[in-house]
Design a protein around this nucleic acid. Structure first.
Lengths: 226, 226
DNA sequence: CAGTGTACTGACCGATTGGTCAGTCTGCAA
DNA sequence: TTGCAGACTGACCAATCGGTCAGTACACTG
């Protein structure tokens, strides 16, 4: 039996093989299918067909459907956390940094839509602690980073000290995640005209949050436009 | 072929038959299974077993798996909207009404967890307009009601006029929905200690929102306790 | 050259899937 | 009593599921 888990050492340069590496094609196809249809709705036949390989070859590289799913999920997690790394590095006044963070967070969710949906699916049918402890491995990093950022704001006096930073972080992430996952439905609501303008949404969210969070009643001007 | 869609007229009182009506047992079992495992992960065999009837009998009452799922979804929708009806009827100052609304909204989500998860699942794999137009039938009613309530607040001067009520409504619903669907994950985060105290969360959310929404800088006192 | 290891495939497997059907049981109207 | 209607069932069906296997193509090492 060949080793069917760890990725191999690069046998050649970068683009060649026949087209692209079969394992990568399988992972990409599986990621897309799992993201848009869910684990049980995707058959290994469909994955093989989408990756343009035989089904037996899929089982040659991944011992089972679960293994393939976990591999996809792992790349999704690392990819998600990697995207969040660049976010906290900006400088400037607290309000501006927060506004930037919220905007970037939602942008990241939408940029790699497949991975985000995959993780949301995982959250939705988390059975007890099984996949849950694995799912929080994603959330934990960027969530902690956000909480730390907010706590910083509290120490510097820019942020009210009487609110739990974790709650604010939950509110922020929740606002973005909900917008992301529901934009398809929001688009059909008569009162909503911002379903396709995420930055308009995040700017207002940031504005509402800030006027509630910020300590001094000085605040920024009413108009959100610069 | 018997009619397999509309519910029949009541043949007897209310509790009898043999135990409970077979159709009800099927619907309940299907609702629970679909909610916790998703459409594709639930087999008709499992539904039949959970409802304690033969699989053929399930197909006798519901022509296909899709039909059964749609029937479950329909009851979920009507049940969800019915729960929201009582919510807007309260009186008092705007801030208190809003706080009450947010609290009740999350409480409703958690009360019938199965139905909520079902609808969230439907939102997640909405393929274009198919189930989407059906899903917004749920959202539309209470969302419009919330937007109208906020607009009222704007007219009465209690609410800032320069923010889109639909955005505020999205923020509110999003905060609650995210808390609901992620509480299992939140529970495992070190910074979070409110995963099982929804009212503590909603009160802070309301407080943050109000100090951002409310027009005058008078506001309420810092401490959220009455 | 032979030999080995691995990517890869078509054909196949038992199990399970959604769905059908012939027929039984029960209650009710004529 | 007869007969019809609908709730209900066990047995069955073709299709598909996840997964296996024997065998081929090919690249590398000796």
């Amino acid at each position: 039996m060949p080793q069917a888990r760890e990725r191999f050492s690069p046998p050649n340069d970068s683009p060649p093989a026949q087209q692209r590496d079969a394992v990568d094609r399988i992972l990409d196809a599986a990621a897309q299918l799992f993201a848009e249809k869910g684990f049980d709705a995707v058959s290994m036949n469909a994955v093989a067909a989408a990756a343009d390989v035989s089904k037996a070859n899929v089982f040659h590289h991944f011992t089972s459907k679960q293994t393939l799913y976990l591999a996809v999920l792992k790349t999704a997690c690392s990819q998600s956390t990697a995207a969040l790394d660049e976010m906290g590095a900006t400088s400037g006044p607290f309000a501006e940094r927060l506004r930037f963070f919220i905007r970037q967070h939602l942008a990241n969710l939408r940029r790699n839509e497949g991975m985000s949906r995959l993780i949301l699916r995982e959250v939705l049918d988390s059975d007890r602690d099984k996949s849950k402890t694995l799912a929080d491995r994603v959330i934990n990093q960027n969530f902690s980073k956000l909480v730390e950022f907010l706590r910083e704001g509290q120490f510097s006096g820019a942020l009210r000290a009487d609110v739990d930073p974790a709650m604010v972080a939950t509110l922020i992430v929740g606002a973005n995640v909900f917008f992301f996952q529901s934009s398809g439905v929001l688009r059909h609501l008569a009162e909503v005209d911002f379903a396709d303008q995420p930055e308009r949404y995040t700017d207002v969210v940031a504005d509402i949050l800030l006027r509630g969070i910020v300590n001094s009643p000085t605040s920024l001007q009413t108009d959100t436009r610069k």
